[in-house]
Simulated assay, not measured.
Amino acid sequence: MKNSFVNKMLFITYLLVAFIFGSCSENNRSSPDDEVINSGSNPSVGVKPLLNTVNTSNWQLIFNDDFDYFDASKWEKNNSQQSRAPRAEIGISQWFWKPENVSYKNGNLVLKSIKVNANTLHCGSIYSNNLFEFKYGYIEARIEIAETMFGTHTALWLQGDNMGNVNGTGADGAEIDVFESAWIGDFTKSVVHIDGYGAAKKANTKRYDTPGIHNGYHTYGLLWNEDKLEIYYDGKFMTRYEGIWVPQVEEFLWLSTGASFGGVADFTSRAIGSFTESKVDYIRVWKMK
C-alpha cells in the first residue's frame, strides 16, 4: 500500500510539472502565430526554419545568398542616372546609387555611402527584379547598418512591379520597407507604400524599438502571407500590417543604403572622401510547401 501511494504521488507530481512547463512555453513564444523562424547562419549544416510549434518540414528554402561573391543570377547593382530625392535639411542636395559602391568582403555584402563633394552622396544598392521574385514566405537578413549620423540610412525592402497602379489597395503590389535606419535612437520604422508615388500615394508607417541597432549585426525578418505582413527584429515580433496593405502578387528584394530623411546628421562637417558602410551577412527566403 505504501509503494502504491508513493507511485500515485510521483505520477501526480509529474503531471503538475508537465502542465507548468507547458504553460511557461506557451507564454514565452516570441510570435503570436508560432511562425517566427530562427534560421541560423551556416547553410552547410542544413538551413531550415525552426518554428515553435509548426512542423519544420512545411517550409522550403527558396533563396539564399551568403554574399561570398556577386551573383549576377540573383542580383543587379543599381546605377542611378539622375539624383534621387534631395535631403536639404542635412546638407545633401543630390545622391545616387553607384555600382562601384557595392563590394564583397569576408563573406559580407558591403554597401558604401561616400561623400564625393560638399553636397553629394554616392551609395550602394542591389535588387532582384526579374531575377528572383516571389509571393508569400519568410525573409530574414543579418545586417550591420551604416552610420546614421553620417547622413545615410540602411534598408531592407521589397517592391512590386505594378505598385504604381492606383486602385486604393496594395494587392497589386507595394513597396514594403522592413526597416530604414534613419534615426539615431534605438528604434526604426517600417513603411508600406501603395498606389505609386504621385498624388494618389498612400503610406502606412509603424515605429518599433530596435535595441542595439547602431552596434553590430542584427536580424530583420518579414513574414508575409495572404492575410498579413509581420515584422521581426532579432527573432521577436514587432508589428503587423493587414487589409489593403498586404500584396497578393510577386515582389522582389532590395538591399540598399541611401541619403537619410531622419533630419539629424553631421554630413556637412564630414570631409570629402569620408564614408560609412553597411554589411549584410546573409539573406534567405523560405516558402510554405
Rank of each mutant, 00 (worst) to 15 (best):
V6M: 13
A174Q: 01
N38D: 14
L253N: 03
K201E: 10
G22N: 13
F21T: 15
D66K: 12
K289F: 06
E242L: 09
K279S: 11
N55W: 06
N55M: 06
K2I: 12
F134H: 03
N52T: 13
G40R: 05
Y104R: 04
P211Y: 12
W157D: 00
E76C: 07
V166N: 03
W183E: 09
N117M: 07
K236W: 09
G221E: 01
S25L: 15
L111H: 00
N3S: 15
E230P: 05
E277A: 03
G137V: 00
S260D: 14
T152L: 02
K77Q: 13
A118K: 15
Y69P: 01
G198S: 11
E180K: 04
I145L: 03
G273C: 06
V264S: 12
N129M: 12
L253E: 04
T152Q: 04
S274L: 07
K8I: 13
F261V: 09
K112E: 09
F134Y: 07
R240H: 02
R142V: 01
S125W: 04
S44C: 03
A259I: 06
Y217W: 07
T13V: 12
S103V: 06
I37R: 14
F63V: 06
A18I: 07
S25Y: 15
Q159N: 14
Y14R: 08
A88Q: 13
L51D: 08
I20Y: 06
N167V: 09
K289A: 10
N3H: 15
F187C: 06
N204F: 14
S190Q: 03
G196D: 09
N28P: 01
N38I: 15
K77P: 05
F261G: 13
A265E: 01
F179D: 01
V110E: 10
K189F: 09
N64F: 10
D266V: 05
I184C: 08
R142A: 09
P86Q: 04
Y208Q: 06
K206I: 14
K77G: 05
E35D: 14
E277Q: 10
F252S: 07
Y233A: 03
G235C: 10
P211V: 11
N28C: 12
G221V: 06
G273H: 05
W157A: 02
E277V: 07
E76M: 12
N204P: 08
R84A: 08
A265Q: 01
M149F: 12
I114M: 14
N106E: 15
A85L: 11
K236M: 10
N101H: 10
K135N: 10
P32V: 11
N79A: 13
K112Y: 03
R29A: 11
T257Q: 02
Q159K: 14
K8V: 11
E226V: 12
V45G: 08
W97D: 08
E230T: 10
R87S: 13
K112S: 11
S260V: 09
I114A: 15
T276V: 12
S260N: 15
Y127K: 15
T154H: 03
Y282D: 03
N130V: 08
